[in-house]
Amino acid sequence: MTDHAGTDPDAVARLRATAHPLRLRILSLLTAEAMSAAEVARALEITHANASYHLRQLHDVGELVVEGEEKIRGGVAKRYRYDATREVAERSSGVDDRVAYARATAIEVERRLRQAGRGSGASSDLEAWVPVDAWRRALDLLHEASHLLHAAARPAGTPDTVHVSLTSNAFTMTGGLEGDAARWVPGQETDR
């Protein structure tokens, strides 16, 4: 359901919850395997309390699922996992929320770049006017690449894997076709 401004409150809450560099790292970590708060804390070298807090925040907005529970020292530890196959309705969030997310992403990309290894990679930046069919095809390819890598994610240090980073941010701007004329749906036909 959308509010009077046309935004989806659930999408806004999800976007705000993920607009934090540490939470972005947690989502990436939990793409490959389910982990408890203690395991997340060890992997990211943060306190257990800090890991628990951020896991709860992400779980409360539906970004994480509880994949299981295990008994540890008389208590129960939840094992959380990030399901990247869900579509995030980012376009229904306000510009300020998307800017906050972009800032958090930029901080996380900077951290990753400082750890970049030698090897193949790609980087691109563009602001241009393109035909709608080229735009939709590019979004399909970005969507496909993102889903491919999320689905192939393995636990850290798995033999015969490469540690990678992928960040994409593509959107229509004002001044050209907008709304339904430029809207993208994964896999939609481009000949409309």
Rank of each mutant, 00 (worst) to 15 (best):
P155T: 10
S124K: 10
W135L: 05
E33N: 08
L113D: 12
Y80F: 15
A116M: 15
G68Q: 02
A152W: 05
A5L: 15
R114F: 12
Q57H: 05
E189G: 10
R118M: 15
V66M: 03
A170N: 09
H147K: 08
L113W: 08
V88S: 05
P21F: 02
A84W: 03
A182E: 02
D96N: 11
L148H: 11
E45G: 15
A181V: 09
A19V: 06
A41V: 13
T105M: 06
D160N: 13
L64R: 00
D191M: 13
V99P: 03
A49I: 14
G6Y: 06
R86W: 10
A145P: 02
S92K: 04
R81W: 03
A128C: 14
P9G: 06
L64E: 00
A170H: 04
S92R: 01
T190R: 14
D133I: 04
S92C: 07
L166P: 00
A182G: 06
V76G: 09
A104W: 02
R86L: 11
E90G: 04
A19E: 04
L27E: 05
A145D: 12
Y53Q: 08
W135A: 03
E178G: 06
G157H: 06
H147W: 08
V132S: 04
S168C: 13
V95P: 09
A38N: 11
H54R: 04
G119E: 13
R91P: 05
R136W: 04
R114M: 12
P21C: 04
G187V: 12
H59A: 08
T31G: 07
T31C: 10
G157C: 08
R79L: 15
D180R: 12
T31W: 01
D96Q: 15
A151T: 10
A37E: 02
L126C: 13
T2Q: 13
A51N: 05
A116P: 04
R98N: 09
L30A: 02
T158W: 07
H4K: 10
G175F: 07
R91G: 08
A84E: 02
R192A: 15
T7P: 00
R16S: 07
R42K: 15
V88E: 03
A122G: 10
T7I: 07
L126K: 07
A77Y: 09
A152Q: 13
L149F: 07
A128P: 03
A156C: 11
V162D: 10
G117V: 12
R154A: 06
G75S: 14
A19Y: 02
D125V: 15
L142S: 03
L177F: 14
V99E: 08
L166Y: 10
M35Q: 07
G187K: 03
V99K: 08
G119D: 09
W184H: 00
T172G: 06
H48K: 14
L113I: 13
A13G: 06
R25S: 05
D8L: 05
D96M: 13
G68L: 03
V164P: 00
N169M: 13
R86Y: 08
G94F: 01
A134K: 09
S28K: 00
R56F: 12
R23E: 02
R86Q: 11
D97L: 07
E67H: 07
R98L: 11
G6T: 11
V88R: 02
M173G: 09
E108T: 14
A13D: 04
M1C: 06
A89K: 01
A32I: 06
D191W: 15
